[in-house]
């Protein structure tokens, strides 16, 4: 009903604290109902009452995820024109198009929380919202395309599969769709690397060089160690996140080691070995200084990525204007015909 729509609109758009004007007793009741839904593995849907912190956390996380997909088109897009065959070019085009699609699914999910996509884009290009730091590294050779599919998308899958059970319905549903498509991304990357490994010595060296450069940044994709991740606890209580950063990182390492062996590459970590007692791999310390520097903007490509995104957005303005003008003209014509 439009009246109730209106109340939702007011609650989500204008008051920073959605239920502040509700009596304290009622708010307590709403919060209890919300907690019970989440604790019972129920799903929260867009127009349900939700604590303001839950909404803000979701907006931050989903927007950051959406931005990562959009910025993530750049390192791979870099190789579309230089792909070594029509087959590889068609695959890479499809993959980059998927990344755009993933960004749009996620912006669409964020919009159900009462923010506007245009506003999120502005925040991204003004550096007010972040994206995954992995995309601030350059793609120097075509082997990087394979390694991104294998390691970067592999890490993304580890992160994202549990998010298909996230408590916020639209986010979980977007993740289901994304995960289905990520599987193609990872497999095409691995196949690309297998092809190179079966080639010349120079091609094998190219693969190893790419693995050396991407391994540690891939491990950083899971975020800070659990002790330094202040939001994790609340996000897990709200069932937005299902596992801690370190749990997911461990799972990724354990999955990847046998794949590296099958490929015939060495993961660049002298401390990486099987721990029989833990039934898991031990691995070396991550360079968190590098991680923090890249997150704060000092990575090799931060400035370039944002400048490119801004140029694409501003350069596309006339296309958006033209489409709007055309739509307005058609609507006027239709209205004129009806009168006549």
């Amino acid at each position: 009903m439009s009246v109730s729509d209106e109340t939702t609109r007011l609650a989500t758009a204008s008051t920073p604290d959605g239920a502040s004007d509700a009596p304290a007793g009622l708010e307590r009741e709403l919060e209890d109902a919300f907690e019970a839904t989440v604790a019972g593995e129920g799903r929260v849907e867009p127009r349900d009452w939700m604590p303001e912190g839950y909404r803000k956390t979701l907006i931050r996380q989903i927007a950051q995820h959406a931005h990562s997909e959009i910025i993530g088109m750049q390192p791979e897009g870099n190789w579309i024109l230089r792909a070594p065959s029509l087959r590889r070019k068609a695959i890479l085009l499809a993959k980059v198009q998927d990344e755009a699609g993933h960004g749009l699914y996620l912006y669409s999910a964020t919009e159900t929380l009462g923010v506007d996509r245009a506003e999120l884009t502005e925040k991204l290009i003004d550096s007010k919202q972040k994206y995954s730091s992995i995309f601030n590294y350059p793609t120097l050779t075509f082997a990087d395309i394979g390694v991104i599919g294998w390691l970067v998308d592999g890490a993304a899958i580890c992160n994202q599969v549990p998010l298909c059970r996230s408590s916020y319905g639209p986010y979980a549903r977007a993740m289901v769709r994304i995960c289905k498509e990520e599987s193609f991304h990872q497999r095409q990357g691995f196949e690309l690397l297998m092809t190179l490994m079966a080639g010349t010595e120079a091609q094998r060296e190219m693969v190893q060089d790419a693995v050396d450069r991407w391994w540690w940044p891939s491990l950083m994709m899971f975020g800070p160690a659990d002790g330094d991740s202040p939001n994790t606890r609340q996000s897990m209580a709200w069932r937005i996140k299902r596992h801690t950063n370190d749990e997911l990182r461990q799972r990724f390492v354990d999955m990847t080691v046998p794949q590296a062996a099958a490929l015939g590459v060495t993961l660049p970590d002298p401390e990486l070995r099987w721990n029989d007692e833990r039934q898991a791999h031990d691995f070396g310390d991550i360079d968190w200084t590098e991680f923090t520097a890249v997150v704060k903007g000092a990575g090799p490509c931060n400035a370039q990525r944002l400048a490119h995104r801004r140029a694409a957005h501003e350069g596309g303005q006339w296309v958006r204007d033209a489409a709007s003008a055309y739509a307005a003209k058609q609507a006027r014509r239709e209205a004129g015909e009806q009168v006549a």
């Binding site: 758009a13 159900t112 996509r117 639209p170 958006r320 307005a328 003209k329 209205a335």
Partner: peptide, 25 residues
């Protein structure tokens, strides 16, 4: 079926007559 967005923009239909492009689609 119920995650239709409670969207926040103004009603674009009211802008159609003016011929000015809308800020957001």
């Amino acid at each position: 079926s119920d995650d239709t967005t409670a969207h926040v923009e103004g009603d674009p239909a009211t802008d159609l007559g003016t011929g000015t492009p809308q800020a957001t689609w």
